[in-house]
Design a protein around this nucleic acid. Sequence first.
RNA 1: GGCGACAUAGCCAAGUGGUAAGGCAGAGGACUGCAAAUCCUUUAUCCCCGGUUCAAAUCCGGGUGUCGCCUCCA
Length: 469
Amino acid sequence: MTIRVYNTMTRKKEEFVPVNDNKVGIYVCGPTVYDYFHIGNARIFIVFDVVRRYLKWRGYEVTYVQNFTDIDDKMIKRAQELGITVSELAERFIAAYREDAAALGIEEADVHPRATEHIPEIIKLIETLMEKKMAYNVDGNVYFDTQAYAQYGGLSQQPLEELVAGARVEVDEQKKHPLDFALWKKQKPGEPAWESPWGLGRPGWHIECSAMSMKYLGETVDIHAGGPDLVFPHHENEKAQSEGATGKPFVKYWLHAGYLNINKQKMSKSLGNFLTVRELRQKIDPLVIRFFMLSAHYRNPINYAPELLQQAQSGLERLNNVVYNLRHLLTTLPPEKVQTAETEEKLQALQTYKERFITAMDDDFNTADAISVLFDLARETNTYLKKKELSKIVIEKTLQFFEDVGAILGFFTEKEDNELDEKINAMIAKRQEARAKKDWATADAIRDELLAMGIILEDTPQGVRWRKK
RNA sequence: GGCGACAUAGCCAAGUGGUAAGGCAGAGGACUGCAAAUCCUUUAUCCCCGGUUCAAAUCCGGGUGUCGCCUCCA
C-alpha cells in the first residue's frame, strides 16, 4: 500500500516517495506573530500536524519545520501601535501561539525557526542570486528578477501576462518587471535593520522560508505546505528564488489546504471577520475545534458556524464515550478463561477496521473517511459491550486501536486528576447507599450536585461511572 | 478580464464508472427506579439540460449558483 498525495504543482494525486529513503522533511509556513492566530490559521496547523503524525505512524522519519515570521510590515506596524519593540511583540505572540496550539493538540515542530535568527543565511542566498544575475539591487532594495527564471508562474499555473494584467497594485517604479519581488528591503527611518552588502535593511517575506527550509531540510524538501492563499505569490516566489539559486527542485510535493470560511466568505485578518483560537477555546473544548476541522477533507473549503461546532461536539462525544466505555470496563473485567470463536472473529474484524483506516488516510489524508471508520467501530463495539460474556483481549485490542489512531488524529488522550477523583468517588459511594435503600430523592440530589460540578454520572451494568461534561 | 474550486438528506460530510459511507438533529421502540450512555427502526429524483456507456453522483459538452486566487493574507 502506498500513500498518495495531491500535489498543487501537478494538480494530481501522486504516489508519495520521499527524496531520501524513509526520511521525510516537511516545511509548513507558520504564522506572522503580530496577533493571536485565528481558526482559519488553525486549520492549517491542525491538518499538517495530522499529516506529520500519520507519516510518522507509517514508519517515516519525519522532520517537521514551521517558521515564525517575526519581521515584516505588519510586525513593524503593530509594534508601533502597541509601543513595544518588534522583538517584544514576537515574543508575546510566539508564547501565545504555543499555548493555543497546544490546546488544539498540535505538537511542537522539530524546529521553529525565526526569520530574524537567520539573517546570515538569507543574505547568503540573496548573494547567490546576485551572482547568478537573478536579482538586482536598486538603491539598497534588492529584487528577484522573475524574467530570469523561466518557470515563473508554474506553481500557480498562471500565464505571466495574466498575472500582470490582473495586478491590482501600483507598480513599484524601481522594479524591472511588475512581478519582480523584494528580497531585501532598504531600511526606512525607525525600522529594525540588519547590515548587508546592500546596506541596512531587512529581508523580504518570501526569502526567509527559502533560506530556512533549505537550511533545515536540504535543497529539496519532500513536502512544503501552507494555506491556499500562499500558492501565489508566496510559494511561487519561494520556488523561483530557491530553484534559481540551487538549480534543483525546491519541493517535491506542494500541499495546500482549503479555506475555512465564515458566512461562506474566507476568514482573514484583512477582512476583519476572524475568530481567534484564543477566544473560541474559552467557549468550547479546543479538541472539538480540531475534530470539526478533521471531519472534512483537508482540501475542501469548510464553513464555520457555531451550530456546526455543536454537531462536531456531539460526534466527538460519541467517540469519547466508546473509548471511555472500554477504559471503564477494563478496570473491572477479569481475564477470560478460554478464547472463543467469537473472540477470534472480533480480532479479525478489528484488523479490517485498521485496514480501512489506513486506506482512507493513505488516500491523500482523507480524515473524514478515516473518522467514519471509527464511528462504525464504535457502533460495533457498543453492541458487543452489551453481551454478558466479554473477552478481555478483545476489549484491550479495541481500546488499543482507538488510542492508536487517536494518537494520529489527536484524540482520546487521558487526563487525570486524582484529588477530584477522590471527592467524586466519595459522593458516588454516598449515592449508592441511598440507592440501595431506594432513597431516590437523595440519590438524584447527589447526581444533580455532581452535574453542577460538570460531572455526568451513569449507572451501567458494570457499575457506576462518571465522566466530565 | 485571466485562472481555479465547489454544488450529495433538515444540517455537516465521504464516495471519481457498477447502482448512494458516516455523523448531527427529528420521530418511534428497547434498556433504566428515573436518567445518562447504548442499541434497533425510520428519512436522498446525488443543482439543471443534453451526450458517451450494458451501466454515470462519478466521464464529456452546455447552463445556473456560490466561493476563491490574480494585493498583505493560512
